[in-house]
Simulated assay, not measured.
Amino acid sequence: MKPYICRALFRTALVVAALGAGGACAFAQEAGGIWMRDDGAARIEFSPCGPALCAVIVWLKSPTSKAHVGQQVFFDMTRADQNSWTGKAFNPEDGKTYSGKMTLSGNRLKTSGCVLGGLICKNVTWRRAG
């Protein structure tokens, strides 16, 4: 085989290998769907709301909670990077809205409601339901 053909085939193989390896790492995780709080107290469902994600409560273990089914608890959550979002979080227990962050890792979702520019945060871990 001619040397210039070998070089062309080698370069083509390198490009194909690089695209294949890079493509596997470039997929962003999606947070849509139903999530159960790690203590089993609630389930929320994330779905698109305009260009962002929002979540409403779809199930509660205790009917005496200040929260109620259908209540929106996360809104305006926009993607910060491949596996995290920022927006707003509503806490039904105190009736206040906080700056919200969430990070997805496999079937685990960590959400945070923060005050004072993120200096004080309350974290909750969720697992994908179903």
Rank of each mutant, 00 (worst) to 15 (best):
V69I: 12
L53H: 12
R127G: 07
F27Q: 10
A28N: 08
F27S: 10
V16P: 00
G106E: 08
K110G: 03
L119Y: 04
A17H: 00
W85S: 07
F27E: 10
A26S: 12
K110E: 13
L116I: 04
L60S: 08
K96P: 03
R43P: 04
C121H: 07
Q29C: 00
V15L: 08
L60W: 05
T111H: 11
S99K: 14
R11V: 14
T78S: 14
G50N: 06
G70V: 00
S99R: 12
T103L: 07
T64D: 14
S84E: 06
T86I: 11
S84N: 07
C25D: 00
T103N: 09
F74V: 03
P92F: 04
S105A: 09
A80D: 11
G113V: 13
G100L: 11
W126I: 05
A80C: 09
A13K: 01
D94E: 05
G117M: 11
K61Y: 12
P48Y: 07
A80E: 13
V15P: 01
V69E: 02
R128L: 06
K88V: 05
K61T: 03
Y98P: 06
V15K: 00
G100I: 07
A31P: 02
R7T: 15
A17F: 04
S105R: 12
S47H: 10
T125K: 10
F74D: 02
G22I: 00
L109P: 12
M36W: 01
C54R: 11
M36N: 07
A80F: 12
C121T: 09
T12I: 14
C49H: 11
L116C: 05
R127D: 08
W126H: 10
G100Y: 10
D38L: 03
P3E: 12
Q72H: 01
